[in-house]
Design a protein around this nucleic acid. Structure first.
Lengths: 135, 135
DNA sequence: CTTAACCTTATCGTTAACGTAAAGGTTGGT
DNA sequence: ACCAACCTTTACGTTAACGATAAGGTTAAG
């Protein structure tokens, strides 16, 4: 059992962030003492890490709230699972779309790099030390 | 030449958004009348669309500002191009990281779907109409 | 039992990316 | 010349995701 500051540090966030996530229903302390102290078990780390990852790729905390439980809740009531399935499929599609957009952006960037490198090496051959693109 | 409302509509944003983008240096009207009216050419649409795409995959307008010109400015001064190249490479890496995170999230979601579907079909064989997962 | 280092709730502040009026000028068709 | 439908700048409001105090209680080591 970790206190909020300890697990926050390990997760690379602040206690404030964890309380905020709790307020949004993203996480719950494994135990709360009679004095109000929050205590967490180590597996909460995995959840926080996943939240950070999903955030980093552009999901809002609200969207994350909808799916975060799905990763870590294999012991849910069965009827809930079917709903879950539908949502998983939907979310999977959204992720696929984002991946495709990123890949498109990526290849276009790569194209720009290539074009620019060619122009630079053509016009700067005299002062060129290295023999062109190494990507 | 389109007025701001026309091009905004075509791009699926509001005039306010375009003025805000202009303020951040993301776009510039092709022409501004003496009375202050902004006029845009059609190719501005491509820029706005790209901004929206990049936003949708999680880039901030500030990050977008750094790269948006790179897509559409092949007539820049040469010395600027070298800086550009460095930034392009950096940004390309970031995009790669995000793609990998999304793909990881995706495969984990897919795993959850599979597990859940198996459990459902095992426990619900009696009432099952369709023959299992079709992904 | 003292004390530093933690924790609590409560509240106000901040940045990003616009939305939403307010008050007025412009355009373009009749 | 008129008016609806646009445009302008200015400025305050809003949501998201926390940060930063403030004022006070708790823990655990010595």
């Amino acid at each position: 059992m970790y206190k909020i500051g300890e697990i926050a540090k390990q997760a690379g966030v602040t206690p404030r962030t964890l309380r905020y996530y709790e307020q949004l229903g993203l996480i719950t302390p494994s135990e709360v003492s009679t004095t109000g102290y929050r205590y967490y078990e180590e597996d909460t780390l995995a959840i926080i890490t996943r939240i950070r990852n999903l955030k980093h790729v552009g999901l809002t905390l609200d969207e994350i709230k909808d799916v975060i439980g799905l990763y870590f809740t294999l012991k849910k009531p069965l009827e809930a699972k079917e709903k879950t399935l539908v949502y998983l499929d939907k979310h999977l599609n959204e992720i696929n779309v984002k991946i495709k957009m990123l890949q498109k952006a990526k290849s276009e960037l790569q194209e720009q790099i290539n074009v620019t490198q060619q122009r630079l090496s053509q016009l700067g051959v005299k002062g060129q030390k290295n023999g062109g693109p190494k990507n």
